[in-house]
Design a protein around this nucleic acid. Structure first.
Lengths: 165, 165
DNA sequence: GCTAAGTAGATGACGTGTCAACTAAAACTT
DNA sequence: AAGTTTTAGTTGACACGTCATCTACTTAGC
């Protein structure tokens, strides 16, 4: 539906989408909004964390044990710093992560998991991985997976080139 | 990073992700969070609407001219009713859509575009379609597009089967 | 050393999505 | 017709992401 000529205007040389293209774009849009919801739902049904919280827990759990700088976390996750900051505040309130002042830089903190954070990520990981495996890796052949990855990379590259990624 | 065994636990028979699988899953996650942002950014840079607003405008613009029921809108967009309701309220404030009581059903309203809504969607459509074409349809071959669509459908089907879609 | 520029991160405002609870009108039941 | 159940849609609380702005520290230039 969004991709078709809006009834009435024929002003410019826009190459509107064909019916086939519209179907794919629709499928893609549904995938973009639906898939994160699926991940979220599985996690908050089977554990006490949301998808984004899990991403943070997992990232911190894989960093050096002294803790990670919140800026590094933002880089790893490819998120905005403020997004990380907001989320860390909420997660600190829940007792999932702890912050302590960085020794070398008076501005930053080292983020690390609390015992609760560790317990939570350990409890959540198997279900999460199973979901990913059962929805992504099991239904597709190796060739399809490779092709999928290549296509996503091409799309991303095109967006990067337009300066919008 | 989320998909690997959380250091320390070897309790259960979880089939953790291989390095290759982790890379694909990472690519996919970046795609899931990055792509909607790309669409959003293009729209709010070149017009006065967000991605979700555009989706509503486009959907309403293609419905019968008397207007659409908000529930139908939710079905078309595959959104929750409350999401549609919230968004319509905001869009009504901006003067993009109008509501009038449905003649046959005292509960519902018919949603339709205001002149402003029409002008907005007509102005935004070409740029939006160009973005989609240039990031999705131009970089990929017909075969890749067909394959992409098939893969997304398989993934979605697997999620539906798990009752999480 | 002192000022200027840059960096780490926090914060507030705002738009957005979700869930659960709610209101009111249909539709069904007997 | 009165009561029950569905259905349409709204609302409020809350989590979340983005943007612009702010503070405090660090670094570079002189």
């Amino acid at each position: 539906m969004p991709g078709q000529e809006p009834t009435g205007g024929a002003e410019a040389f826009t190459r509107w989408l064909s019916t086939d293209e519209q179907h794919l774009w629709l499928e893609l849009r549904e995938f973009l909004s639906g898939m994160p919801r699926v991940v979220d739902r599985q996690l908050s049904r089977d554990s006490e964390v949301s998808g984004v919280e899990y991403a943070v827990l997992a990232a911190v759990s894989e960093a050096r044990p002294e803790g990670v700088r919140s800026g590094d976390l933002a880089a790893i996750l490819e998120w905005e710093k403020s997004r990380v900051s907001h989320l860390l505040r909420r997660m600190e309130c829940k007792g999932l992560v702890g912050r302590c002042a960085a020794s070398d830089d008076g501005r930053g903190q080292k983020i690390s998991l609390t015992d609760d954070g560790w317990a939570t990520v350990r409890a959540a990981a198997p279900g999460h991985v199973s979901l990913v495996r059962e929805t992504i890796f099991d239904p597709l052949t190796r060739a399809e997976l490779a092709q999928l990855r290549a296509s996503l990379q091409k799309i991303r590259a095109a967006a990067v080139e337009k300066g919008l990624w």
